[in-house]
Design a protein around this nucleic acid. Sequence first.
RNA 1: GCCAACGUAGCUCAGUGGUAGAGCAGCGGUUUCGUAAACCGCAGGUCGUGAGUUCGAAUCUCACCGUUGGCUCCA
Length: 584
Amino acid sequence: MGNRMHLESITKEERLERMRHSAAHIMAEAVCEIFPDARLGIGPPIDTGFYYDFELPRALTTEDLPIIEEKMRERIESNVPFEPSQIGKDEARERFHDQPYKLELIDEISDEKVGLYQQGEFVDLCQGPHVQRTGEVSDFKLMSVAGAYWRGDEHNPMLQRVYGALFDTKEELEQYLERLEEAHRRDHRRLGRELDLFSFHEEFGPGLVYWHPKGGRVRTLIEDFWRQEHLRAGYDIVYSPHIGKSTLWETSGHLDFYSENMYSPMDIDGQDYYVKPMNCPFHIQMYKNSLKSYRELPIRLAELGTVYRYERSGVLHGLLRVRGFTQDDAHIFCRPDQVKQEIERCVEFMRFFLGAFDFEQFHVYLSTRDTSGKYAGSLEDWGMATNVLRDVINEQGLPHEIDEGGAVFYGPKIDVKMVDTLGREWQCTTIQFDFNLPERFDVTYIGEDGRERRPYMVHRALLGSMERFFGVLLEHYAGAFPLWLAPVQAVVIPIADRHIDYAEKVGVELRSAGLRVEIDARGERMQAKIRDAQLQKVPYMLVVGDREAEASAAAVRLRSGEDLKARPMTEIIARMKEEGSQRV
RNA sequence: GCCAACGUAGCUCAGUGGUAGAGCAGCGGUUUCGUAAACCGCAGGUCGUGAGUUCGAAUCUCACCGUUGGCUCCA
């Protein structure tokens, strides 16, 4: 195809993509040399390098990687050309007769001819493009082996995927490897332990979070902020039970379509009760508790609702994927003429929160109806809701991707995913229409004409869950929370034991100004106390010795390492109060 | 759930068939110090759990539990 275009006309990105793709082919060749019976899956470029999927007679281990790497380097060294060709599908089937996965791919190609690329003795089914010669492939590193289902479907056989990292230059590759190490340092699981924020106790239940005093303090600050802003935004804050009788979950449909995520029932007086995986059915009962007039809408019921969901053991991941979590949930019931404005308010509210926590990197997805599956509600409703969602994110200028057919069966939705240190995306915000539950629970309001109407119901979580949000936030700040969120805002450090009395006086002053303070009265040297406070990422270190006690002052050292020298206590308190009142 | 690796003291890790180790943290003592680790000592582990092989298992085998990285799924 376009593989013969002049080198100069290729952008840097295209060139890098070709190198990555070519490296995948070279890896396939190397693996085939070690395992002549290897069956090949696919081997595309990805944004940090490349991978290739294989079916092999034995499992690869990390010890195999250097051997494969060595063979790849030999091939790069030999600098043979990548030669494209086109052959008919029948001929291709003949050539790949012992490669079932390639045959499957050939069957799906609509053209009469299929593309091949050959380097040395190795031929792969491929559209290209590639670099011209193997020698053009820059330095790389094989990273890991992992299982991956053929075509991403768990009903298919699992292949072995080898991941490689590849960048333009050796320097960029090294930078990437350093970034990985940095990511490891700011991994929320590590920070959670080092900063004593939370823990897990696997022997007593995996995926269940224990929030320690300091983590609890930060969470409380986030929740207080959340409540205050929700009240201000016209939400009502509610609390619902943690369990409900099976009849509730039968009516809601959860026992039919969500049971694999629900825990086994408990027997109470001979009745089955389930721990809630969602808050919606409860909020609906609150709505339905009295007849609603069109004048009362919109009704916005918000709850920091703790839910429990069964997650398969292999997917648990620190705070980012747990089995018990607290959603910052809300259900909005509104009239048709209010839908647009309510969605606008949700999206604006979401942006307000993400802004307050200084998030700039997030990805917005609009999920539309799966045209092949079943769906609740009418096509008109789906069309209207999808348009509203699309219009709002367009009007607000939010870059987004469309996830065609990605919606759940009960309604279209907007999802916002945050990125962790390793670049993995985690869904936090979700704003979704629900055409199912209002129907099932027969949710209504009385319209102007005195007749019963069905309200629109929007389910939304802005932070997502406290656990996941906290995990992402922790990595985002690398543990160094801004002053308003810091669990300990200042540590007072007496230089010698004779300064402890004054240090406590300083502590009292700061506490009565509403600041969160600790006094480090251990029998350690000042240097050691500074180091420990620094490692705990405490924003303010207040060193007090003879001079400070004399002057009602403290020597201020900031987390940045900046030394502000001795300052009067009044000035320090004013400064900290001012800084703490600002978010971001 | 699936594939692979891993599981030794609170943490980070050494120990690959023959008497369980180090650093940090903890505790006790000495030191009272001016901006990122004072010094000395003590204590701490049925080596994830359970079977098996062996004269003998942290070490080899199997099963289970859990963690990590992926796959799939989701806040």
